[in-house]
Amino acid sequence: MQALKVVRPTTIAEAIEQLNEGGDGARPLAGGTDVIVIARARVRDIDVLVDVKQIPELTAIEWDPDSGLTIGAATPCYELYGNADVVQNYPAIIDSATLIGGTGIQGRASFGGNLCNSSPSGDTIPTQIVLEGVANIAGPNGERSVPVEDFCTGPGRNVLGQGEFVVSISFPAPDASGGARFLRFIPRNEMDIAVCNAASAVKLDGDTVRWARVSIGAVAPTPLLVQGAADALVGKPLTDETIEAAAEASKDAATPIDDMRGSIKQRKHLSAVLTRRTLQQAARRARGEDIPSVGGH
């Protein structure tokens, strides 16, 4: 662990000031499941950890049937799958929340942290993208909001400027005809980094796809919103053929690397497989079928 200090602001303004003062060496501390590991490994120069969990907004969950859901950026996964509103209205969020790490990680890890860590394989980001999530950012120059699909700019890089941090993530209210699903592929059944992951969301008019979003991860420098997959579906009936076309679009969009977690061939193949599987299951959810997340959630 490199030499650092931990500060614990209680207001957004205080946090902005501390982050701003700390410059490049200051990092927000939410669940810590990534940033502490990074500091310990001395991967990046960090000399101040700004623990944002004492700021009420950062751990709040607000739900309104009209305006949708806002979750504090530092809210741990555990709180999400313990929250009936989230469970009932955003099952794809639960898919992600129950897949991250193990139970102990879920006691700390947050959607905001996962987003800000900006890993290509972040297991909440495709879900946030297909649910049209917006990151609400506070900083020395005031507040701004960025759609999640535009948030990450490269492996470990994102749009946050000096002194800025994510306060919350907002999701629009779900559509009664909609459904979403997140899946990932890992060699083990838990505790692994995605070889490839994917989320799909659809809104159906009968058999016809009215609206769709597909996002895949771990196959490019950032999680991708696959426009081609949506294009292959919207306005068309949801059939094996259209799903396959969307899957092919994902495969085409994927530009993975070969590393110890997966090969290019494998990842491209899985982009298609997971796109297909998430679309099929998102559609079933859209039709009211109960498809549980892992762990019986």
Binding site: G102, N189, E190, I193, M260
Partner: peptide, 14 residues
């Protein structure tokens, strides 16, 4: 892959 994340020993779920 020198971590228990990437050196994949079976978990209870495996």
């Amino acid at each position: 892959n020198s971590s228990l994340l990437d050196y994949r020993m079976p978990t209870a779920l495996d």
